[in-house]
Design a protein around this nucleic acid. Structure first.
Lengths: 330, 330
DNA sequence: TTGAAAGCGCTAACAA
DNA sequence: TTGTTAGCGCTTTCAA
């Protein structure tokens, strides 16, 4: 059924649309009785003005940036969002956040919706499949909407902000290898994630004999991976896909009667806030998450404002090993 | 400077706006050379179509719900968002998230922006000041946009989804009192937060002699509160505003040489995921966070769809004490 | 105090 | 293959 318009209301009230408009805009040129009646009719007809039509088409609007993350329920992204929001704020931009929740169709849909909402630029943390079927990005390009990928690849089309995962994982693993560990297990991240792939590669470069166990990206997955695959296993160190997995794994290890770092050294990745608050503070690889969000927003805004066709940028930030108490030398 | 429009492009290219429109919509009725030239000009003029004008005004659009949270960087809200998203998804609604980051002006602004983006309904976790100056909500009402508050009050204007904080805090505290604790400290939440107030009241009802120490809502604030106010203090139990504060406090206690629950029992609030993964799993009050988000979205959608003016609802969900290992009887 | 009409940027039919 | 024009829902003059 058609949406109720100002015409319908006007017709129903037996007045002109101009009068209805005046009521809508709280102008006091309308007689009390008329206003009352019109308001009443708006209500019963469930009239909701089309906002886009109100601000004269094409009139200056609030500047907005869209941000699509893979999963909003992850402290890692929370930091990225905060960083992007800070930078956006600084330039009078608003940030609209959507989450694909790891579902590709929702990512496509989210981009569509944000475009329909007339955002000025987009930051996206794309699912890996995006590389294959990326028509939703082409639409952005066609509409001249600058977009920045976080943790992406894709040819030269887009700007990218990322960290050197391979190096970070390599260093984390080397930290263990240098400490005398030889029996390593890598609790790997989600399949179809760039980060997971790169981190896995870094682990293997530092320790080709490392055993790879597929875990995931959450507390529960870390916990389950340990209980499902590691009882009876011989290993002295665990390199985890991220801190959440590490924290989950540590609980699993404890339940297996293993002490950290006494029996097993554990390394995480991300350095989420809680990592340093644990009873055994977690050794991890710190990602400058806020900075990533900030830079992504900065690049997007820059591209929006420079009318000249800006070259796409790629920023690779450093991940840094933070040694705390969950690892020890053998 | 005026935004570049299709007219400008057409004029510059020496063609009609119809042709430019055809190019914009990838119709193959345009000659290769012409298309090339137009695309080229679009690019140099930095032309970005006004999306609102493209979809014929008032034509059916994607249904969207807006969600404004106080701080996106908080696992508590993450769960609410996920719940709202799930419910929205189920009804073919999209969820646009914005965060006020505890700043009132940004809350007002976020509501404005979402209205301008033509959302169909709004869920908001308002700052407490909202009670006073709530013109941004009146705007919603005037535009017939249903809105649901999470953790709100406000007369009968809006629907509200909340939990019984007072009761939850009361039960958590009683748990300690019944276990023989008499020297309690309450690490209170942010001033200007309903939840903080209500929880404080619950604590005091169960234990009028409890000492109130203002902390906040974060890991760092819990940690600092302990180090700043509790060395040398005599107490055997800590009731914290939320889990984050509790986890921060536990670190502080450890640094003070206090054992949990040996020397001090600690209770949190929220039951965020990590609470049960700690080395000393946290006793806490579980809030059905996802359910709150779900219900809020469900109510919003219901109000959008029922043309009849729906009564505003108030849902009060139960918070439930979850006893784990961070508390013990004296 | 109200009505009539132009126009916002764009799409879609139809004409040329 | 391209141009012309009506109209989307609303605001805003200007007249009545």
């Amino acid at each position: 059924m058609r949406r109720t318009t100002i015409k319908d209301v006007a017709h129903e009230a037996g007045v002109s649309i101009g009068t209805v408009s005046a009521v809508l805009n709280q102008r006091d040129s309308v007689r009390g009785v008329t206003r009352k009646r019109i308001l009443q009719i708006m209500d019963t007809m469930n009239y909701r003005p089309v906002e886009a039509a109100r601000r004269r088409l094409g009139s200056p609007r609030e500047k907005t940036l869209g941000l699509v993350v893979k999963e909003i329920h992850n402290p890692y992204f929370a930091d990225i969002i905060v960083g992007a929001q800070e930078e956006a704020q600084k330039h009078q931009y608003r940030l609209l956040v959507m989450s694909s929740e790891q579902v590709f169709d929702r990512e496509v849909d989210a981009v569509k919706v944000l475009v329909a909402k007339d955002i000025d630029g987009l930051i996206i943390n794309p699912l890996m499949e995006s590389g294959t079927e990326s028509s939703h990005f082409e639409e952005l390009a066609a509409h001249n909407i600058p977009f920045v990928m976080i943790e992406g690849q894709l040819g030269d089309a887009a700007s990218v902000v990322d960290i050197d995962n391979e190096k970070g994982a390599f260093e984390a693993t080397m930290h263990l290898v240098c400490a005398g560990h030889t029996e390593l297990v890598h609790l790997a991240g989600p399949r179809y994630s760039h980060h997971a792939l790169e981190r896995g590669a870094g682990v293997l470069r530092a320790c080709p004999s490392a055993r790879i166990v597929h875990a995931g990206a959450t507390l529960a997955e870390g916990y389950n991976a340990v209980l499902d695959h590691l009882p009876l296993a011989r290993f002295t160190a665990l390199v985890c896909y991220n801190d959440l997995v590490a924290i989950g794994a540590m609980r699993g290890l404890r339940e297996l009667g293993l002490r950290i770092p006494g029996d097993v050294s554990v390394v995480g990745f991300d350095d989420i806030d809680v990592a340093s608050y644990l009873e055994v503070p977690l050794t991890t690889v710190r990602i400058p998450k806020r900075e990533m969000g900030r830079q992504a927003a900065a690049i997007a805004i820059e591209q929006i404002q420079s009318s000249t066709d800006t070259r796409s940028k790629r920023v690779l930030l450093d991940a840094e090993l933070v040694v705390r108490s969950s690892t020890r030398a053998i």
